[in-house]
Design a protein around this nucleic acid. Sequence first.
DNA 1: CTGTTAGCGCGTTCAT
DNA 2: ATGAACGCGCTAACAG
Lengths: 335, 335
Amino acid sequence: MALTIRDVADAAGVSAATVSRALRGLSNVEPATRDRIVAIAREMNFSVSPAASRLATGRTGTIGIVTPFVDSWYFSQIFAGVEEVLKPFDVDLLLHTTQPRDPSGLPGAHVRMRRRVDGALVIGLAADSDELTAMSAMDMPVVLLGSRSPGMASVSIDDRLGARIAVSHLAELGHERIALISGRRLPAVFLPENDRLAGYLDVLSARQLPADKSLREIGLFTAPGGEHAMDALLSRRRPPTAVFCMSDEMAYGALRAIARAGLAVGGNKAAGEIAVIGFDNHDLSGLFDLSTVGQPVRELGRSAAQLLMSHVVGSPTTEVRIVPTDLHVRGSTTP
Amino acid sequence: MALTIRDVADAAGVSAATVSRALRGLSNVEPATRDRIVAIAREMNFSVSPAASRLATGRTGTIGIVTPFVDSWYFSQIFAGVEEVLKPFDVDLLLHTTQPRDPSGLPGAHVRMRRRVDGALVIGLAADSDELTAMSAMDMPVVLLGSRSPGMASVSIDDRLGARIAVSHLAELGHERIALISGRRLPAVFLPENDRLAGYLDVLSARQLPADKSLREIGLFTAPGGEHAMDALLSRRRPPTAVFCMSDEMAYGALRAIARAGLAVGGNKAAGEIAVIGFDNHDLSGLFDLSTVGQPVRELGRSAAQLLMSHVVGSPTTEVRIVPTDLHVRGSTTP
DNA sequence: CTGTTAGCGCGTTCAT
DNA sequence: ATGAACGCGCTAACAG
């Protein structure tokens, strides 16, 4: 049906091996014949069969991306960074989303990636995940993104430090009742959010502030979730005067809840304003005038992709890269 | 290095052919031996080589996704819908982003997809795109998403109708100077946005309203772009009293610009409120209290994926599916 | 520099 | 129901 390298060879009057060499740009081919072969091949509209090529070489020319979610701002930014770096390498991108809550017999990441990628980028999987251990159990080069695991290469921010920065900023404003809106229920070891909780507690204890558990709510990493969480916090006997949200999108919801309650947002504690800070520096946070601890998500993607490629084409690595975060002070914490 | 089907055959005391049949669940295999083989295979932790399998069968078991952008809410929602449908089919997902403005010798979508997918979902490519024509020139099954092209299967909304709904809604409020913030410069045939422009003009002409070109601005489909565009519109000698934005994110920016100008947003024209309506029903539009024409993005992804699969495993189709939009009236247009 | 030979690991005839 | 043999299209190793 489709053309084979053999057809091109016949048309060019050379052997199949020479065509293969010419098409791959190997050096041991007379430039003249190489050009001729390439010309003929494209004239015939020929392209090699990746399957055959993979079978013969053992290399797949494919990089896998494993992620638990794809419908989030975070992922889309990560992916944009990854794409940017991987583009020049001319590799295929195999995408797989793990469904956390659905062990319904569908194959997991490790089996979906197995034998079909030269390496994989694993986003946001807990370090104790079965899929992760299975992947590293095979020889597959893996780079973790957003989490860390002993003996594995990874790129992430310092979540604990980031949280400290955020909460310190609130404390500097004079706040003592600082609430926390987290994504999932914490503490849960192996999750990055747990580090953020630790950072939050670090600041409270360093400043001798009460670690009031009634000041913690879950926001599911969504705006409606954040809104709901803030509603709950505001209904406490002694509501918080400031709140740290583990994601900007939850903070958007919190802002809304505060406004609905007829309260003001801002950094002027004396005037009764509630200070709000988020985490991510989401694209829209400028619009919401939301203070936040920014993580360079796109850069995380770039860095992880680079690390993975150097692992795949070069030598194995267990490098752990920590990318710095930065504080963006906006209206939601400005006096 | 890796195990082959042969190793399993030896361990089970059968031939490689039988193992192949057993592992694929073909009927012509004694149930007892089939179970034994499967048990042994998983005990050896064996998995077949996709490359060899593809070479032998000619099928790739892979679906391609071609898209010009990946860092957008639209894409992430589309993808979530696609994923949902494709998951049970157990196919690989090959992702390729076309870079519109970068013909720098890097291979285009058609060559990246060639010989490696059984079919492709093409998102947001103009119908006159070289890559698109190239893909359909090969035998590759293609389903378009968000655009249409003669003779090709596609899933999209009725952009013209959607725009009419939005602009009619503004006109009903009594507005006569209705501005338009588009993503890219229009008119540009083959782009869905062009249909939205047409819908906008439809309403103006039906109601004998002036089609003032100074009331059209470009917003790049981003919030900052929308903000900038609205700034420009407000600085006109005779500024608009209402605005239709081709995306919600641009509308967010517009809301901000209006607020900064000290003007009010809403549906009460008599009170001098500026009416704003967007397009998409983005997740955050409820928070912004933004009226909008919603498109069921996730559903678009699902529908397109279904269509593609029926094309790939079943018979070729050129079905054109139009998914309805719906009007969401919120505070930005409520009197 | 080029051609010949021999797999890569499966799926698929054909027999039996 | 099972096995033997061949071929899928390409690359690698060895000659020359």
